[in-house]
Computed example of a mutant assay.
Amino acid sequence: MNRRIEYKWRLREIMAARGLNNISDLLPLLTDRGITLSDSQIYRLVGQKPERMSLALLGAITDALECSVEDLCHFEAVSSNSRLRRTVGSTVEPISLNETIQPRRARVRPTDR
């Protein structure tokens, strides 16, 4: 029986729960921890599932967002012979975004002419 591991990358959800709405909010947190990435690298990291990642970057993200690896990645073991899925580490509770996210009021400033 062949099995493969699938995962959900939840960085965007965790950032939103912590009040970080842009990639520019994440950049200084990673820089303080010795990780320097370009804007495009951070954009891909937040928006897409990473296939490879250094442990230093993973450690910096978990430290900056005060979460664990299990919070960032939700793993599932999938059998290719059947359509059954078994969750690996099923003790992870999803973050309720309705309770944790508060919208920020926009400020409109007059332009200087």
Rank of each mutant, 00 (worst) to 15 (best):
residue 1 M to W: 12
residue 1 M to H: 11
residue 3 R to K: 13
residue 4 R to T: 06
residue 4 R to G: 01
residue 5 I to M: 10
residue 5 I to Q: 06
residue 7 Y to M: 02
residue 7 Y to S: 03
residue 8 K to I: 12
residue 8 K to E: 12
residue 9 W to E: 00
residue 9 W to T: 00
residue 9 W to I: 00
residue 10 R to N: 08
residue 11 L to E: 00
residue 12 R to E: 07
residue 13 E to F: 08
residue 14 I to G: 01
residue 14 I to E: 06
residue 16 A to D: 07
residue 17 A to Y: 05
residue 18 R to H: 05
residue 18 R to N: 06
residue 20 L to A: 02
residue 21 N to M: 10
residue 21 N to G: 03
residue 22 N to K: 10
residue 22 N to L: 08
residue 23 I to D: 00
residue 25 D to S: 07
residue 27 L to A: 07
residue 28 P to K: 10
residue 28 P to A: 03
residue 28 P to D: 05
residue 29 L to P: 02
residue 30 L to A: 02
residue 30 L to H: 06
residue 31 T to R: 15
residue 31 T to M: 12
residue 34 G to V: 01
residue 34 G to C: 04
residue 35 I to R: 04
residue 35 I to P: 01
residue 36 T to L: 10
residue 36 T to Q: 14
residue 36 T to W: 10
residue 37 L to G: 00
residue 38 S to Y: 10
residue 39 D to H: 15
residue 39 D to C: 03
residue 41 Q to M: 13
residue 41 Q to D: 07
residue 41 Q to S: 13
residue 42 I to P: 03
residue 42 I to N: 01
residue 42 I to A: 00
residue 43 Y to E: 01
residue 44 R to K: 15
residue 45 L to I: 09
residue 46 V to R: 14
residue 47 G to R: 10
residue 48 Q to H: 13
residue 49 K to H: 08
residue 50 P to D: 04
residue 50 P to A: 02
residue 50 P to W: 07
residue 51 E to L: 11
residue 52 R to W: 09
residue 52 R to M: 04
residue 53 M to H: 09
residue 54 S to F: 09
residue 55 L to D: 14
residue 56 A to C: 05
residue 57 L to G: 00
residue 58 L to Q: 08
residue 58 L to M: 14
residue 59 G to S: 14
residue 59 G to A: 11
residue 61 I to Q: 04
residue 61 I to C: 06
residue 61 I to Y: 07
residue 63 D to E: 14
residue 63 D to T: 10
residue 65 L to K: 04
residue 65 L to H: 04
residue 66 E to W: 03
residue 67 C to A: 04
residue 67 C to H: 04
residue 67 C to R: 05
residue 69 V to S: 09
residue 69 V to D: 03
residue 69 V to A: 11
residue 70 E to D: 11
residue 71 D to K: 08
residue 72 L to A: 03
residue 73 C to W: 13
residue 75 F to N: 02
residue 77 A to R: 15
residue 78 V to C: 08
residue 80 S to T: 15
residue 80 S to V: 15
residue 81 N to R: 12
residue 81 N to W: 13
residue 83 R to I: 06
residue 83 R to D: 10
residue 84 L to T: 08
residue 84 L to C: 06
residue 85 R to C: 05
residue 85 R to W: 08
residue 85 R to D: 01
residue 85 R to S: 08
residue 85 R to L: 11
residue 85 R to E: 09
residue 87 T to A: 06
residue 87 T to G: 00
residue 89 G to W: 13
residue 89 G to T: 09
residue 90 S to C: 10
residue 90 S to I: 10
residue 90 S to V: 09
residue 92 V to F: 13
residue 94 P to H: 03
residue 94 P to G: 02
residue 95 I to D: 02
residue 98 N to T: 11
residue 98 N to Q: 14
residue 100 T to N: 04
residue 100 T to L: 15
residue 101 I to K: 03
residue 101 I to D: 03
residue 101 I to C: 12
residue 102 Q to G: 02
residue 103 P to E: 03
residue 103 P to Y: 12
residue 104 R to C: 09
residue 105 R to N: 08
residue 106 A to P: 03
residue 107 R to T: 12
residue 108 V to Y: 15
residue 108 V to E: 12
residue 111 T to K: 14
residue 113 R to I: 15
residue 113 R to C: 09
residue 113 R to G: 10
